[in-house]
């Protein structure tokens, strides 16, 4: 077993990815009041497009990464137009929008499967070795091995989160997002184009989800059409834990879930990691049904 400190380092970088991913759920939920269950497919899109650009089109990572994020952002916007908006305009129940998003997720994953076959001859593909520096930084005194990519992830994730906070709390468009989150009728009376705010929210959620997917692919190097499944439940757990629709809640929830997973693997083996996560979620919800940050309205966007 690795040292405690080593586990912390691992948990923090995994948590950064989970948080980025969970933020996408939280953003959309805060604005629409609906869970976008196709967000895991957006995550996969980020990894898929990143891999495609690097492996097949031989682009450097600094070009591939932003393009992958933007592609994921557009897939996310497409979800709004195809899976959510038509139902919302017909006054459909939130449950049917949820189901519609599940359908969209399956469709996107299937399309990715179709694309994987000719591109990589199966459903599994790998980022080239050495794409990111993989020589671990060893700190003997602390018996710590840190793979550089894990530090890079942390920095990128933090930068994105700070940018998002700035956007939501300090800009005109963020103010409009918060107004729509408060009440879309009131926002419309204030001259805010609610439909445009929805589209922008889906785009932001997609950027973050796509970044999370790409980083996840870079850490584990392999990408499949199904990598969204790895994080779908984890992300949901993170936002329920943190409080639905709360940005800070999604952040803390993501790190918390990663920590619980990492330590339960270290202690009990990987078979129990999800059982432990969901067990703790259950206990927490009994004590605090609104989640950790469920009441801090000011952080909703």
């Amino acid at each position: 077993m690795d040292s405690f400190l080593q586990q912390v380092v691992n948990a923090v970088s995994l948590g950064a990815i989970y948080s980025l991913f969970a933020l996408g759920y939280a953003l959309v939920f805060s604005i629409l009041g609906v869970l976008n269950l196709a967000h895991s497919a957006v995550f996969m899109t980020g990894a898929f497009v990143g891999l495609l650009l690097v492996d097949k089109l031989h682009q450097p990572l600094w070009i591939a990464a932003p393009l992958a994020m933007i592609a994921a952002g557009f897939v996310s916007i497409l979800l709004e137009f195809v899976a959510f908006r038509p139902l919302r305009q017909r006054g459909a129940a939130r449950m049917s929008q949820l189901i519609s998003s599940i359908g969209a997720a399956l469709l996107i994953v299937n399309l990715a499967q179709l694309a994987f076959k000719p591109l990589w001859g199966g459903t599994e593909a790998y980022f080239p070795q050495g794409l990111v520096p993989d020589q671990p930084i060893v700190i003997e005194a602390l018996s710590l091995r840190i793979v550089p990519i894990r530090m890079i992830i942390l920095v990128i994730a933090l930068a994105l989160v700070i940018a998002l906070q700035y956007l939501v709390m300090r800009t005109r468009i963020g103010q409009q997002m918060r107004a729509v989150a408060f009440n879309q009728r009131t926002a419309a009376l204030l001259g805010i184009n609610v439909g445009r705010v929805y589209v922008l929210t889906f785009f932001l959620a997609g950027l973050l989800g796509g970044a999370a997917g790409l980083l996840y692919g870079l850490v584990f190097l392999n990408v499949t059409p199904f990598i969204g499944d790895d994080v779908a439940l984890v992300g949901l757990t993170a936002i329920v834990l943190g409080g639905l629709g709360s940005i800070n809640g999604a952040l803390v929830g993501g790190f918390l879930v990663a920590a619980i997973q990492t330590f339960s693997i270290a202690i009990g083996g990987s078979n129990y990691k999800n059982a432990v996560v969901f067990g703790l979620l259950f206990v927490l919800l009994l004590a605090r049904p609104q989640g950790l940050f469920g009441q801090s309205e000011s952080t909703r966007a």
């Binding site: 103010q175 918060r178 107004a179 408060f182 009440n183 009728r185 009131t186 419309a188 009376l189 204030l190 001259g191 805010i192 184009n193 609610v194 309205e297 000011s298 909703r300």
Partner: peptide
């Protein structure tokens, strides 16, 4: 609604609807 408001027909809604968390 946002176009109508921008054209100068502005409503103060029932129950004020101030945005509580702003």
């Amino acid at each position: 609604p946002d176009r109508i408001a921008a054209m100068g027909m502005v409503q103060v809604p029932e129950g004020r609807q101030v945005i509580a968390n702003m």
